[in-house]
Design a protein around this nucleic acid. Structure first.
Length: 496
RNA sequence: GGGGCGUUAGCUCAGCUGGUAGAGCAGCUGGCUUUUAACCAGUUGGUCAUAGGUUCGAAUCCUAUACGCCCCA
């Protein structure tokens, strides 16, 4: 495990011998080669030039990168260097290189990092290339690259050694660039609308803002337990109390739960809060956001996810949770949804872990998740969640059983969750007390009573709406990825 | 937590109802001065995930374990 040479093999030994010779010959691992061009820049600038034009006015460049392919033909050779922008072909002729340089090149291995200086030209087949006059080995690669044609396909190795995956599989590089573009677009959207980006604590004395089990850690000097945050919500609303009326945070949350294609213990969440807005305003904002993201990242509002097309340009449907239950369970009558006996029986038949303290609201939510959620393919806002399952959301004025809350579903998955915020400190205190009672009764996901948060509300939280968007799931949608691990550079795995 | 599938050379994969381990790429040797999955000839390379078991004989059958993937709770 700690032994770096534990998986040594013949091919590595051969390369180690070359490295030893290189060391003996002088200064290995040089850092004085300065490149002045990237592969993509060269293709952009000279790709359209005629071969004759390039020959008439020779352009000298210095490129560097990893050698990912090589074709040696006696006293001349071709190779491709891969840099952050793409690939550029090198052409090496023994007669055009300094004494011994061609032989040194033949001694290099696929995977080595090379620097090359030479002249831009076009080959007979029209590929833009650099005819090399000077070649330097900058970094010896001791380990061989995966198959040049098939790349690396073993999922376990791709996740554990993402660096190899990134070298070998261009699609993976492209995916994580798209992830970065999506996050850029998210930030731009909120910044343009006057939202302030903030960073709130990742380590919480009291975990809050969501129903989830936290990771626990310990601060030695203060001798206190701390919890990795399960959500930033309560801190962000404190900031709205403080007068930052539009804030957002884009950062990691941690939940001590299982790992699946939809869940990683640490995941990226965008949360934003806007004073003097309600949940309807946020639904409008969310639709605008999704359209903007699609336009920025994909150049169109239509995307294909796992073989099905979605058009984010169309208005997103808005459907009550109760109505959704009825629509997707045609055998269930409206009156039955208000009959606790029927609901409990239904839930039991679905193998849901029904508990005695579950009220109608909790039963609805569980039944909804089981029978409706996977069917919600086209974008839909499910609205009006029961107060029982929404301890931080404002009640509806016309019916306190419900809150002003929505969740956005696309492709059968919850992508966003938002609501008008509960800003009545006395109502919030009462809801915390109920949560604390549940926790005392053994519900590990129930919330703590957060006295400082109540105190903040007592200073006055203006009417506000807030929302969280699961960024990893968003990236999955925009990159057609079936597993969250595909959109995380280093997903959590058991130690090998 | 339960079920299914997988793990063979550095990589990608074959390997049938059990009979002593194979290919392509990479590597090594030689040839080749515009190739691009370069080509041609030769060649090295394996604790068949791990530990047991059945058998004259196990990559192959059985059991357990580890790791991964998928589905369910």
């Amino acid at each position: 495990m700690s032994d770096a040479h534990a998986d040594e093999h013949r091919l590595i030994a051969e390369r180690r011998a070359k490295l030893a010779a290189w060391r003996a010959a002088g200064a290995p691992f040089p850092n004085d080669f300065k490149r002045d061009a990237l592969a993509a820049e060269l293709h952009a600038r000279y790709g359209a030039c005629e071969a004759e034009a390039l020959a008439a006015e020779p352009v000298s460049v210095a490129v560097a990168g990893r050698m990912v392919s090589r074709r040696i033909m006696g006293k001349a050779a071709f190779a491709h260097l891969q840099d952050m922008s793409g690939r550029i072909q090198l052409y090496l002729r023994r007669d055009a290189l300094p004494e011994g340089a061609y032989e040194a090149f033949k001694d290099c291995d696929l995977g080595d990092i090379l620097g090359a200086r030479g002249t831009v030209f076009k080959t007979r087949t029209g590929e833009l290339s650099v005819e090399v006059r000077e070649l330097r080995l900058l970094t010896k690669a001791l380990r061989p690259l995966p198959d040049k044609y098939h790349g690396l396909t073993d999922t376990e190795q791709r996740y554990r050694q993402r660096y190899v995956d990134l070298i070998a599989n261009p699609g993976v590089r492209e995916l994580f660039r798209r992830r970065a573009a999506l996050i850029d677009s998210l930030r731009a959207f909120f910044r343009e609308r006057g939202f302030l980006e903030v960073e709130t604590p990742m380590m919480h004395p009291i975990p809050g803002g969501a129903a989830a089990r936290p990771f626990v850690t310990h601060h030695n000097a203060l001798d206190m337990d701390l919890y990795l945050r399960i959500a930033p919500e309560l801190y962000l609303k404190r900031l709205v109390v403080g007068g930052f009326e539009k804030v957002f945070e884009l950062n990691r949350n941690f939940r001590n739960e299982g790992v699946s294609t939809q869940h990683n213990p640490e995941f990226t969440m965008l949360e934003f809060y806007q004073a003097y807005a309600d949940y309807r305003d946020l639904m409008d904002l969310t639709e605008a956001l999704f359209r903007r993201l699609a336009e920025d990242v994909l150049g169109t509002t239509r995307l294909v996810y796992q073989g099905r097309e979605y058009d984010l340009g169309k208005p997103f449907e808005r459907l009550g949770l109760r109505e959704a239950l009825l629509r997707h369970n045609p055998g269930v009558g409206a009156a039955e949804l208000d009959d606790p006996v029927v609901l409990r029986d239904w839930a039991a038949r679905l193998d849901l872990p029904v508990k005695a303290e579950w009220g109608k609201g909790k039963l609805w939510l569980e039944l909804f998740e089981k029978t409706v959620e996977p069917k919600l393919l086209d974008p839909v806002f499910i609205v009006d969640y029961p107060t029982e399952v929404s301890p931080l959301a404002r009640r509806r004025d016309d019916d306190p059983f419900f809150t002003e809350r929505f969740e956005l579903f696309i492709a059968g998955r919850e992508i966003a969750n938002g609501f008008s915020e509960l800003n009545d400190p006395e109502d919030q205190a009462e809801r915390f007390r109920r949560q604390a009672a549940k926790k005392a009764a053994g519900d590990e996901e129930a919330m703590h009573y957060d006295a400082d948060y109540i105190r903040a509300l007592e200073y006055g939280l203006p009417p506000t709406a807030g929302e969280g968007i699961g960024v990893d799931r968003l990236v999955m949608l925009f990159t057609d990825s079936p597993s969250i691990r595909d959109v995380l550079l280093f997903p959590l795995l058991r130690p090998a």
